[in-house]
Write a protein that binds this DNA or RNA. Sequence first.
DNA 1: ATGGTAGGTTGCCTA
Length: 265
Amino acid sequence: MSELSIATWNVNSIKARLANLLDWLRDNRPDVLLLQEVKCVAEAFPHEPIAELGYHSVVFGQKSYNGVAILSRHPLKEVRRGLPGEAEDRQARYIEATTAGLRVASIYLPNGNPVDSDKFAYKIRWLERLRAHAARLLEDDDPVVLGGDYNVIPEERDCWDPAAWAEDALFRPESRRGFRALLYLGYYDAFRARHPETGNAYTYWDYQGGAFQLDRGIRIDHILLSPPAVDRLVDAVIDSEPRGRPKASDHTPLVVTLERPPVTP
DNA sequence: ATGGTAGGTTGCCTA
């Protein structure tokens, strides 16, 4: 099959999730996997067991919190760590590289709660910095894939109980507006492009209260595609199987499939 | 009305 798959998964600690991650990689073999919340410094990242499965990996790590990585079966080039626009920002939330003919980024957007704190202001600034950088990426030739945990519920149908989320940073109008600003640039939400009528399709379920068993979730992990990338979109699937496993992350993978580019003579 | 869960770090913060 001449297809290329790109997945995103917030693993909530790569150390705690390594066995589940390796199992999933073996079973699914995506070309590219974008990871968030690896929660380790780059030196502690488990490159070796991942390499044994055929994956290169680049990491922007941080002790205890955040941390993003890109795994690829193809060479990874021109790696960028961190989003421009705020020199004093030390949080490891953005890594970008060229692989498989695509410019791909793994994004861990700030959560932003509580709304009346500087954490929310940081989230909104971060969204604006992402918008500015995403606009620049559209000027380059490579198709762009921006995947990760956006910590934004785009619409009411993307959560089980909109009223329960009304005052949360993940659903505040400012957050949703910041997410829509990326779409206004010309990016497409791959899951929504492929499933325009679907509601109650989630990528995250809280650990508490049996949320997964009750299917009380939210859709906050997204893969955004530039126009040349969405032209090649074949499918976008949420794989909820890993969320039901023992020692699961509270997020589950989203997998996008693209046609391979036409071979140019 | 409260606490419920998980991960990391360290005696509490983040999600």
